[in-house]
């Protein structure tokens, strides 16, 4: 067997060279042994891919789950941050991960869907298995203090009289606020100028500084300053706890439903048992009083949806948003 050793050495050298050539600069995705028993899952820590910077909203929400992860899954999550391109980079990575259940991640409805429509992410609705939604954050239409538009009726009326003259700030181009505004335009038959700003804080300062006529903002981001602007309507199926006296658009006759949903996903192709275990585990954490209190303190509004419910919602939303964007963005 003397010869064998030498050939093993040279073979392994060749293998390494090959691997360098094949994997290049990308990630080394060695094919995984898929036959692991799903019964004992999870046997080791689960990687949690956060497509945003540490310290951001998605990170904080997931950290609150992580406080209880040890008792549910035997280990804490291992956090992997993959920020870039507003989450599109990380979401692409989640979709490409191994389907053994040890790599899951968090994305935001509808941003990852819109990234798929705009072409900035190479994934779509069917690239993921859906575990659950833990929280949601609908949009509110706001106008600066002293504005002439304090109700949905006044706003729609003004927009009808001056087509494309009203400026509506949204927290990002082709983001959730953008599509919510498009939905309102479609349902109310109006046209406004959409001003894409850089995130919720940028929108808040544009409203407080009266640089735009109105804004379609996420409740959570602007709620602490709610005394300094008018809130016209909320894009939810029911009135929201944070602003109970603000009517929904649905009440006003425009069925606009849009929110940022914090959802947990896995790459498509997880074993059903594993997916179920993940959903049950996260639901158990979600039900804990301590978790609910944490969320409340940080001004996140909890809103549970099962994986199946999430999937149904995103499929419908995707079709609607795609049509709207194609219609209004030429």
């Amino acid at each position: 067997m003397r010869l064998g050793r030498k050939s093993i050495l040279s073979a392994s050298f060749l293998l390494i060279v090959l691997m360098i050539l094949v994997t290049g600069c990308g990630q080394s995705n060695t094919p995984a042994p898929e036959k692991k028993s799903e019964v004992n899952y999870p046997e080791r820590p689960i990687n949690m891919i956060v497509p945003y910077d540490p310290g951001g909203g998605s990170d904080m929400l997931t950290r609150m789950l992580d406080k209880h992860a040890k008792e549910q899954f035997g280990n804490n999550f291992t956090f992997v941050y993959k920020p870039g391109a507003g989450g599109a980079i990380g979401a692409s990575d989640i979709a490409k991960e191994k389907t053994d259940g040890y790599s899951i991640g968090t994305v935001n409805i509808p941003n990852y869907l819109l990234q798929s429509i705009s072409g900035s992410g190479d994934f779509d609705v069917d690239s993921f298995d859906y575990i659950c939604q833990t929280a949601s954050d609908p949009q509110i239409l706001i106008t600066p203090k002293g504005s002439n538009y304090t109700t949905v009726e006044e706003f729609v009326q003004a927009a009808k009289e001056n087509p494309k003259k009203l400026t509506v700030g949204v927290p990002g181009a082709l983001g959730d606020g953008h599509v919510a505004t498009l939905m309102l335009m479609e349902k109310a038959g109006i046209e406004v100028s959409i001003v894409p700003l850089k995130g919720g804080s940028d929108l808040l300062s544009a409203i407080l500084g009266k640089h735009v006529d109105a804004g379609m903002a996420n409740i959570g981001v602007v709620i602490s300053e709610k005394d300094n602007f008018n809130i016209l309507g909320v894009t939810f199926d029911r009135r929201h706890d944070f602003v109970p006296d603000v009517p929904t658009f649905k009440e006003k006759g425009y069925d606009v439903q849009s929110f940022v949903g914090r959802i947990y996903v896995a790459p498509k192709g997880l074993a059903p048992e594993v997916l179920q275990k993940l959903e049950t585990g996260l639901k158990n954490i979600w039900d804990k009083k301590e978790y609910q209190d944490d969320m409340k303190n940080a001004k996140f509004s909890t809103d549970w949806k099962t994986g199946a419910e999430v999937k149904e919602f995103v499929t419908n939303y995707y079709t609607e948003a795609k049509e709207l964007i194609e219609k209004y963005n030429k």
Partner: peptide
């Protein structure tokens, strides 16, 4: 922004 995230996590809301 990161520090603000830390504040929010403690239930402290920066602002007016």
């Amino acid at each position: 922004a990161v520090i603000m995230g830390g504040l929010l996590a403690h239930g402290i809301i920066p602002g007016s």
